[in-house]
Simulated scan of single mutants.
Amino acid sequence: MLNSPALADGTKLVGRILLALMFVLAGYSKISGYAGTQQYMASAGVPAILLPLVIAVELLGGLMVVLGWKTRLAAFALAGFTLAATLLFHMNWAQPMQQLLFMKNLSVVGGFLVLFAAGPGRLSLDRG
């Protein structure tokens, strides 16, 4: 049973959705909270002009992973994006919550790297 292709493909689909959901929701919330997000980015030394790119990466990359379209490319890009965001925004380890967010993000990077290596499964537009 554990070697079932149907189980593996279903699990990859659920895993893709769970990995990407955070990015789709975050990208969408940045649209409605645009000014506040610009201020937060600026407080970390990130130019606010990059916000449209951030929204596009989160929304489009997340949707690509959910749909399983160009999955390996999207997974690799989101792994890099998440690592960069982690290093920019979650390095204040004097705050326990920042330590937790740092470790959570490293786990997400790991998940995207596994997806990059394993592919999206047959329940995807890539069918691979």
Rank of each mutant, 00 (worst) to 15 (best):
P47T: 06
V57W: 04
L7C: 05
L63T: 13
L18S: 10
F23L: 03
I55N: 07
G121A: 02
T37S: 08
A77L: 15
R122T: 10
L113P: 03
L7M: 14
K30A: 01
P120Y: 09
R72A: 12
G68M: 05
Y40R: 03
A42S: 08
L51G: 09
S4W: 10
L101W: 13
T86A: 03
W93Q: 08
G10R: 13
D9I: 03
R127C: 04
G10V: 06
L100V: 15
L78R: 09
E58Y: 06
N92T: 08
A74P: 08
G33L: 03
L21W: 14
Q38V: 14
V114I: 15
R72L: 06
G110E: 10
G33S: 08
W69L: 15
L21V: 13
L13K: 07
W93P: 01
A56F: 15
L19A: 10
A79Y: 08
G128V: 11
A75I: 11
L2V: 08
Q98K: 04
A48N: 03
L101S: 09
K104P: 07
A6P: 00
L101V: 12
M64I: 00
A8I: 13
A8F: 15
L87M: 14
R127W: 07
L125Y: 01
L25D: 06
I49E: 12
L125V: 09
D9F: 02
N105E: 03
L83I: 06
A8Y: 12
L88T: 13
L101T: 09
L51T: 05
G15L: 13
S4L: 07
V24K: 04
F112P: 02
A79C: 09
L60Q: 04
A75N: 08
A118Y: 00
A35D: 12
T37L: 00
Q38L: 03
P120W: 09
G121N: 05
L51H: 00
L88S: 06
N3R: 14
A20C: 06
L106I: 14
E58Q: 15
A6Y: 11
V66T: 02
L7K: 13
G111W: 01
Q99P: 02
L78Y: 07
I55D: 01
V14A: 15
S32L: 02
G62M: 04
V24A: 09
G15T: 12
R16I: 10
F81E: 02
L115R: 07
K70N: 07
D9M: 02
F76I: 15
G121S: 01
V108K: 03
E58C: 11
L59D: 11
A35N: 07
G36N: 00
M64A: 15
V66P: 04
L88H: 08
T71G: 07
I17V: 14
T11F: 14
